[in-house]
């Protein structure tokens, strides 16, 4: 097994009531890089993420996290390796931001009980990392969508995982906050050595921020590679059925996708 791979997936299949959702997935996620899962609605992106986290049990095929088969890991060990930011989580409970993030320490509760003050320091650290330290005592029901998403990322970071998996973390955010979240993830890779695997819908965000793209289509891997290789007018036509043209993004010098919006 390649030690540079954070996640290695082989022969992974999943079906729901005899309807195949994922078929024979083989993919790898490199350590300390930004890997994006792309694909149309219903292509199996979320199911793939849930399998990696073993929220859905692995039935056919294998998933290795840092060279360890996840079927042999208990929940706590799994939570030490990988944290999750679920799709569109919004809770009605009046937890404070700090209390919500503290839940992320669950997998380390025995450690924290032995080490006085560690939990508080750890919570403070992830709040700083995600720039929400000023919201500590605010209720999660009373903060904005962008702030909430940072709280959830902070909660996942409080697990001290080496991999963080995010399901559409920017979908309901305005452009400023979308950019804020993606930049934050990039910083976490550079400064904290984190590995990011992320489902995105926005093709240009994927192009600008990803190191690697896994393109899903009808529950199969359509292809994987650099964003420049994977996001092209040809693949977008084949996978999404949309007509696009590429121009150069003046900031990143990467291609910028413009869909054909004529009626």
């Amino acid at each position: 097994m390649d030690p540079n791979q954070a996640i290695t997936i082989d022969g992974l299949s999943w079906s729901y009531d005899d309807r195949p959702i994922l078929t024979d997935i083989a993919a790898a996620v490199e350590k300390q890089a930004f890997t994006t899962i792309l694909g149309p609605n219903g292509s199996g992106k979320t199911t793939l993420l849930k399998q990696i986290l073993r929220i859905l049990p692995v039935r056919a095929g294998t998933v290795f996290l840092e060279s360890r088969d996840i079927t042999g890991l208990d929940r706590r060990d799994l939570a030490h390796v990988i944290g999750m930011v679920p799709q569109n989580e919004r809770n009605p409970y009046q937890f404070t931001v700090e209390d919500m993030i503290r839940l992320g320490r669950y997998a380390h509760r025995e450690h924290d009980q032995k080490h006085e003050g560690y939990e508080a320091r750890s919570i403070e650290r992830v709040m700083k990392l995600t720039s929400i330290d000023h919201l500590k005592d605010h209720l999660i029901t009373e903060i904005s969508g962008g702030e909430y998403q940072r709280v959830i990322i902070a909660r996942a970071l409080a697990q001290e995982p080496r991999i963080i998996a995010l399901d559409e973390p920017t979908t309901y955010l305005d452009p400023l906050h979308q950019l804020g979240i993606l930049k934050l993830l990039k910083q976490l890779i550079i400064n904290e050595g984190l590995t990011v695997i992320c489902i995105l819908h926005d093709l240009n965000s994927a192009m600008s921020f990803s190191d690697h793209v896994i393109m899903l289509h009808d529950g199969k891997v359509f292809g994987h590679g650099t964003p420049q290789e994977m996001i092209t007018p040809q693949t977008l036509k084949a996978v999404y059925g949309i007509t696009t043209q590429m121009v150069e993004d003046p900031f990143t010098r990467r291609p910028y996708i413009i869909p054909d919006t004529n009626l």
Partner: peptide, 20 residues
């Protein structure tokens, strides 16, 4: 008390945070 908190967040989030 921790488990009861996690259960409030739902099955998937609770599992991802290490709850059996």
């Amino acid at each position: 008390h921790r488990e009861l908190d996690l259960l409030l967040l739902g099955e998937e989030a609770a599992r991802s945070m290490g709850l059996s």
